[in-house]
Amino acid sequence: MTEVLQAALVWFNDPANWTGSRGILARTGEHLTMSVLAVLLASLVALPLGVWLGHRRRGGTLTVLVANASRALPTFALLLIFASTSLGFGNRPAVLATAIFAIPPILTNTHTGLLEVDAAARDAARGMGMTGLRSLAQVEIPLALPMIAAGLRTAAVQVVATVTLAALVGGGGLGVYIVVGLGTRRFGEVLAGALLVAALCLIAEGVLGLTQRLMTPEAMRRYATGQADPDRSSSRV
């Protein structure tokens, strides 16, 4: 293990591994591009469907159950199936396979977020004369944003980790270092690739976690931390 770690450090210290079309910076950009495309593709399907089902409060349970059951589909198997179609080998089947993998958390959280909007807020919107669509846009979705953001955060981190498999079907990204390292028995390169993927996941988690916090209204953050707990307030009086 020590030898592998030393080999990984030597690999990181080689300037040639950082520049060029096959360097770390280029591979990281490729990895992020595939991840962003996959999450956007999943969002185009899951967000409107989750909002619609959550607003209607009907039929969502079955849809969410089906979406969650799809998590049992092995992403690697989907990757190989798509690669054998007209999509061909490369980045495209990886984007599509990981997009399918990202749909369940986005759909589930969006649906749940809309369902958990306080009924009193809905009634108040109706009392103000808002139409259903206006209430959805101005009341329900803003209140559900923290939960929706949590679903996007979960999906994005999962996709960043899973896009690594793209290298197995001739795609790019940081997974190339792992696949090439295994093929040539350069295990230092394998470890380096794994560390790069792990670091990218942690960075994505941190950035999206901060984004989720910023999307949460101040009053909801205070309530979550107990600063606006009515029982505590009354106990101080």
Rank of each mutant, 00 (worst) to 15 (best):
M1N: 09
L78Q: 05
V163F: 12
V237P: 10
G206A: 13
P105M: 12
I178L: 13
D229N: 15
A26P: 02
L191K: 07
T225S: 14
E140T: 00
A198I: 04
I100N: 02
V36F: 15
R71H: 14
G88E: 03
G50Y: 10
I81Y: 02
P217M: 01
A94I: 02
E140A: 02
A7E: 12
F89R: 14
V45G: 09
G173W: 10
L87C: 03
L49N: 01
L53C: 10
G206C: 05
Q6F: 13
D231R: 15
L73C: 09
L41T: 13
S70V: 01
T85W: 06
P15I: 04
D14V: 04
G193Y: 10
M130T: 00
L210A: 14
G88L: 04
G60D: 02
G193K: 10
L145V: 11
T131S: 15
F101V: 06
F101I: 02
I178G: 12
H111V: 05
R213Q: 04
A166D: 02
A16E: 03
L78S: 03
A69K: 01
V163S: 09
I103D: 06
L53P: 11
A199N: 05
A167H: 04
T211P: 04
A46P: 06
H31I: 03
S235H: 14
V179D: 08
L62G: 13
L25M: 12
R134A: 09
A155Y: 00
D229H: 15
V66C: 13
L87N: 05
G54S: 02
A42Q: 05
D123V: 00
L133G: 08
F82Y: 09
M215W: 09
G90N: 08
L80W: 08
L115D: 04
A8G: 05
A156L: 15
L191D: 03
Q158S: 14
F187N: 08
R232I: 14
R236E: 14
